[in-house]
């Protein structure tokens, strides 16, 4: 229950806007971090905090691509293969990533660690090929760097010490304000 676990953060977020509804996207970011994806439970919880019908949260979840309705891997790898990146071989890079991970785009590895997605422009066109992993940028990539990244993430997951996600950092900020 994010309601209990993040009571302070939620209070802080609500205080930023004159209407509760405005807090929908921030709370959904928080809920998704907690639950891994926007499960029905997560939607219902956010809705109840904001006094909204859960249908509204479902609507938002479906509209915005950063909310996942289905479970995803621990690491979501989002490769930009939009035009500017594609001119620099992003499509081939995505194909390579897919082969290395042994999954198709939009699939998750059997160990539940990685989900691969291709996405629209991530504002890093000058550093293609690139990807975001849980919203952190990894730029100027090639096959070797990709393999190193995957190895590092595997090790990190095995050690159980995941770097704090950016959302977590934001939430920490909310706590202080």
């Amino acid at each position: 229950m994010i309601q209990d676990k993040y009571a302070e953060e939620i209070k802080g977020i609500l205080a930023r806007y004159p209407t509760k509804k405005s807090a929908a996207l921030p709370l959904m970011h928080l809920a998704q971090r907690e639950y891994g994806h926007m499960s029905r439970e997560a939607m219902q919880e956010v809705a109840s905090i904001l006094d909204l019908d859960p249908t509204h949260i479902l609507s938002l979840t479906g509209f915005y691509t950063l909310y996942y309705e289905e479970p995803v891997g621990k690491y979501v790898l989002e490769v930009c293969n939009d035009l500017a990146c594609a001119l620099k071989g992003a499509d081939e890079f995505a194909a390579m990533a897919s082969e290395k991970l042994g999954i198709d785009v939009d699939e998750t590895t059997a160990d539940g660690l990685f989900t691969l997605k291709t996405v629209m422009c991530l504002a890093a066109c000058d550093r293609a090929p690139m990807l975001q992993c849980n919203l952190a940028f990894h730029e100027h990539l090639d096959e070797a760097k990709f393999e190193a990244l995957i190895a590092k993430l595997r090790a990190e997951a095995a050690s159980g010490k995941m770097a704090p996600s950016v959302v977590e950092k934001i939430a920490a900020y909310a706590k202080q304000s």
Partner: peptide
Amino acid sequence: SMYFGAGAYICGEETALLNSLMGNLG
């Protein structure tokens, strides 16, 4: 205050942006 969108190019259009900031569909 900061406000984070959640993946929708259309939210760059100013009225969509404001809708999104009000917790509506962008």
